[in-house]
Design a protein around this nucleic acid. Structure first.
Lengths: 108, 108
DNA sequence: TAGATATGCAACCATAGGGTTGCATATCTC
DNA sequence: GAGATATGCAACCCTATGGTTGCATATCTA
């Protein structure tokens, strides 16, 4: 079971985000497909995909000699709900109270 | 203007996420406040806060000899909308089409 | 002003991690 | 079976970066 850390770290790298973008455009691409046009070795891409798999952001299915990769939206949604939603809810009461407090002190 | 990369990278570190959690519990804390109970030097915490500031996830206000830190929800919401929302929309048509395609080949 | 408190800055260290090269393995096709 | 294609594995390199120590600076208070 991947941790939050696995997911955040996997998302931290721009190359991996680009790979997810590519899979978003066309899901189920093979390693070779995903390498096309990237200034990177196949092995580098494979490593990135392994990281994404470890974070469960990508699910891979071996098909003969090819390996096809699919986006898994579940972890991203979990992160969005469990983590980003937390900061999203407008707890403006406490926030603005503190800010007002500070601003008051500043202007006095 | 912080880039997506700044934000994702800032969020990638568990210590920094814990700092954001702390600020979420009590916004406007000083460096010293945020250091309390952490197995880390004050300088390390200061570095993390600098990274969060660079990503505009935290806004700091100097107040006498203290520096108070506030969460900024804007970047997180932008990320959530621009990036996570993208994967959230159920583009199941293309996905399941490709999956069906693969499964079909597999079972044949 | 002197000392205490709160933070800033810089050099340094060690590890993690992105990337490469080289070779091994598995699958398809002729 | 032989060669071509697609991927896996391992060692290695180099930089980014999380963390430290040491000292400087600024602010508050007695």
């Amino acid at each position: 079971m991947p941790t939050d850390d696995d997911i955040f770290r996997a998302l931290a790298d721009p190359s991996r985000r680009r790979l997810l973008d590519r899979l978003h455009l066309a899901d189920g691409q093979s390693l070779g497909d995903l390498c096309a046009g990237l200034a990177m070795t196949r092995q580098a891409v494979a490593k990135h995909l392994a990281t994404l798999e470890a974070a469960n952001l990508v699910v891979a299915v071996r098909q003969g000699r090819e390996k096809h990769h699919f986006i898994n939206r579940v972890p991203i949604n979990e992160i969005a709900e469990r983590w980003i939603g937390k900061f999203d809810q407008p707890r403006l009461s406490a926030l603005s109270a503190l800010k007002r407090n500070l601003e008051g002190e500043e202007n006095d």
